[in-house]
C-alpha cells in the first residue's frame, strides 16, 4: 500500500512536538474513511490524535485559554461536518490544520473589526501571569517581547512564521495549510523572518533607550535605589 510504504506521507511532526499524528498513517486513512461513513468513534480517535497539536497551533495566535478551547472544538466540529468534502486522496492533517488556522484568523479579524482588540484581547502579559513560573526572569521577558513583536507582523507573514518556525511544519505542509504554493511560502517565510528581525531589533533598541538600567535596578544583586 502506498501509504504504508511512504513514511513521509504524513510528515506533520515537529521537532518540538509529539509526533502522534504521524505514527500510523495507514490507520489514519482507515479512521478517516470510517469517520466519513459516520463512525463516531473513528472520528473520536482522530480528535484524540490531533487535538494537542491543534490546541498548540491556535495558542500561537490567541492566548486566552477559553477562546483557544472554543476554537479547537469548533475546528473539529467543522471538520466532522465537512468530512464529505474532504478529498481522501489528500492528507487529513493539513486539511484539519487549515480549518483551524482559518477559524483562528477569522476570529482575530472579527476582533479587529469590532475595534475591541485592545480591550478584550488577551495579551502576552496575561500569558506570562498564566504560566506556572511567572516570576520575572529574563526568559519570560523575552517570551513576552517576542510575542509582542509577532503581533506586529501582518497576518499572512505571522501565520507562515508560526507554522514553520514555531510549530515546525515543513514548507510543503505550510503550503497545504495556507493553500499557497511552496514558492510563495518560501518567499513569505524569508520576508517574515526579515520583518521579525527588523521588529525585534527595533524592540531591543526601544528597551535600551527607554530604561537602560531598569532591569539591573530590579535585580536582587543590585543595590536598592538610594542605598549608600
Amino acid at each position: 500500500m502506498l501509504l504504508m510504504s511512504d513514511p513521509d506521507s504524513l510528515d506533520l511532526h515537529s521537532p518540538t512536538q509529539d509526533a502522534a499524528p504521524a505514527d500510523n498513517p495507514c490507520g489514519e486513512a482507515r479512521l478517516v474513511h470510517l469517520a466519513r461513513k459516520g463512525d463516531h468513534d473513528a472520528f473520536g480517535q482522530l480528535v484524540v490524535r490531533y487535538e494537542r497539536r491543534v490546541v498548540k497551533v491556535i495558542q500561537r495566535f490567541i492566548v486566552d485559554r477559553e477562546t483557544v478551547s472554543d476554537l479547537t472544538q469548533e475546528a473539529f466540529l467543522r471538520a466532522f461536518q465537512r468530512l464529505q468534502q474532504f478529498d481522501p486522496s489528500r492528507r487529513f492533517g493539513p486539511w484539519l490544520f487549515r480549518l483551524a488556522v482559518n477559524l483562528t484568523c477569522d476570529h482575530l479579524r472579527r476582533q479587529q473589526r469590532r475595534g475591541r482588540w485592545s480591550l478584550f484581547a488577551s495579551r502576552p502579559e496575561e500569558w506570562l501571569t498564566d504560566t506556572a513560573s511567572a516570576a520575572a526572569n529574563r526568559r519570560d521577558e523575552i517570551t513576552v517581547q517576542v510575542q509582542r513583536v509577532l503581533q506586529e507582523l501582518p497576518e499572512a507573514y505571522r501565520t507562515v512564521l508560526i507554522l514553520r518556525d514555531l510549530e515546525g511544519f515543513c514548507t510543503a505542509d505550510v503550503a497545504a495549510i495556507t493553500d499557497r504554493t511552496e514558492a510563495t511560502i518560501r518567499w513569505r517565510l524569508a520576508e517574515a523572518r526579515k520583518m521579525f528581525r527588523d521588529a525585534w531589533e527595533r524592540q531591543e533598541r526601544r528597551d535600551q533607550y527607554v530604561d537602560p538600567n531598569s532591569l539591573s535596578a530590579n535585580t536582587p544583586d543590585s543595590p536598592p535605589t538610594g542605598a549608600p
Binding site: 500569558w127 517570551t143 518556525d165 521579525f196
Partner: peptide
Amino acid sequence: ALYSLRDAAPEP
C-alpha cells in the same frame, strides 16, 4: 529569540 517561544506555550 523567536525559538525561545517554542517551549513557552502553556500546558494544553
